[in-house]
Amino acid sequence: MNKKIKTLYIIWYREVLIYLRNTVKFFTSIFLPILILVFFGTGLKTMFPISILGYDFVQFFFPGVLGLSISIMAISSTMSIVWDREFGFLKEILVSPISRSYIILGKILGATTTALIQGILILSIIPYLGINLNAFLFMKAMLVIFLISYGMAALGIFLASRLKKMESFSIVSQIIIAPMAFLSGAFFPLSNAPSWMIKIANYNPLSYGIDALRWVILSGSLEKSEILTITSHPLLLCITVFLVFNFLITFFSIRIFNKSIY
């Protein structure tokens, strides 16, 4: 058991080390969501004043941007597995006497950690946005962030574990990320969307994730009835869906990776 944890640790350690080493990626990953929040959010806010919505537009917008940026971060971090394959480093890991399932779990947890770091940093600007978040809510939000980033990281590994070229990964990940983002309810509340769109969105794990984030982050600033107008699923359902999704996608990514050659 101890040895297995050590294996996980070492794969995880490398992922995180590479993330922290890459200062450019580190800063852009935080800079972009903040830019979107500050400029894009403030701009849109003028179109939807509190008098119409009943709540601050930034309050609606923040959990969505947070959820999307950690998802993108988690998925793009798993690119390292394609990178490792293209430049051969994966061979070095594969010929070492450790089990492939642990390689995958370590990779998923590494990518999750990068997304968690980003989540903490984005959450840290929350006092400037007029959202109340105490320590307890912060911890709860981090748990939800963990769930989402784990799922997205596992999804990324699932997509990446057969690809041999970095270009293919960026294309594949965009094909996956774009519809997930638009149908997640991050940019507009899905509750008012046409029914065909809601039907598709119900199959989008990210829409549950972003709803969960809204429930947790806004619970200190908005009434329950107000949150209800901008979400489409109850919190418990969101968490359950994500837990199941995480479990399944981990299983599938381990399976697909075990079958890949190198």
Partner: peptide, 8 residues
């Protein structure tokens, strides 16, 4: 082929 982690 050379297989080292260049970032490290």
């Amino acid at each position: 082929e050379t297989i080292l982690d260049n970032h490290l």
